[in-house]
Simulated assay, not measured.
Amino acid sequence: MTTGNFDDYRRERTVRSSWRAARILLAVLTVLALAGAGGLFALGRIADIGPFSTGTPQADYRPDQWEAIVVNRWNRIPDDYPEPALTDLDGGIRVDERIAPDLNRMLDAMRAAGLDPTVTAGYRTRADQERIVRDRTFLNENQGMEEEQALQAAERAVGAPGMNEHELGLAVDVTARGTDAQARQGVAEWLAAHAWEHGFTQRYPHGREQLTGMDESPRHYRYVGADLAARLHDDGLVLEELERTA
């Protein structure tokens, strides 16, 4: 396979996805011709977007249990999910301000244990996530994968747009500063043992890929609150299992 570059790749993707833009334009014109709920219904059915979409169901969201929302490849971020109020961490990373106190306490505890942690990812916009998936898909294609296979692998690794916890502002990627493999392993082991004490759970552990729909990620942690984190830890569960037993 001939190796391309990101600009060529994005141009090719734009051409291949032109039919999608045509469908959306048709949907907009249809909505303009209809009124009220009927218009929203048409938008969802024709363009497959919005609250009447025929695609992936929306995750169950309850404002009084915001930390328990389960977003994955089977449950997308709800259309009415509120824009998170964000706060800045070191390095320009942002997270939902409600998780920052517990996150900072966890980072302080890690430093007290002799580690040097850093948060490498926090809140992402939908556009951020779309770009990340495009770039990962490009890399997969340059390694010999067919287009659909490359996209699926990218989404298993980093999460499909609209179905990724980083867009909630409740997820962080935590590792050690620098490139020392032993230091990174030390951070991963500490998190696996102690993150639950600070309200976080390892979202994509080894051996649960079929349940979570995602590849293993030892650095991806999701805030779920103290009570839920303790339950997940004590019972050895991931959020998908808890949802099924609720």
Rank of each mutant, 00 (worst) to 15 (best):
D215A: 10
A188S: 14
D108G: 10
L40D: 13
A121E: 07
D128Y: 02
G50V: 00
Y61N: 07
G144P: 02
P78H: 08
N72H: 12
E67M: 10
H206T: 14
R111H: 05
T245L: 02
I132G: 06
I46Y: 05
I69K: 02
M214T: 07
F200T: 01
E209I: 08
D8C: 06
A153P: 03
M110F: 08
E67P: 05
D79W: 12
R23F: 14
A22P: 00
T137P: 11
E216N: 14
T118Q: 14
P117S: 10
N140P: 01
F52W: 14
A229F: 01
I99A: 08
P57F: 00
T175M: 12
N5T: 00
E130C: 08
A154V: 04
V172M: 09
D116A: 15
R11I: 09
L103Q: 08
G144D: 07
R11E: 15
L26W: 03
T3Q: 12
R73M: 09
Q210N: 08
A127P: 03
Q143N: 12
I49S: 09
G207N: 07
H198Q: 10
R208V: 01
E148M: 13
P218L: 14
G225T: 02
G50H: 08
R124P: 00
R11P: 09
Y81E: 02
V133R: 08
A22M: 11
I69S: 01
T137Q: 11
R231G: 04
N140E: 00
W190F: 04
V95Y: 08
L228H: 01
L29E: 05
V71F: 01
D180R: 13
E216W: 13
Q202Y: 01
G39C: 05
N72D: 15
E189T: 10
E243K: 14
V224P: 01
V71C: 02
Y123K: 07
T56D: 02
A27N: 07
E240I: 02
L239Y: 03
R136D: 11
R76E: 02
D173Y: 03
D64F: 07
L29H: 06
A112L: 13
G162Y: 02
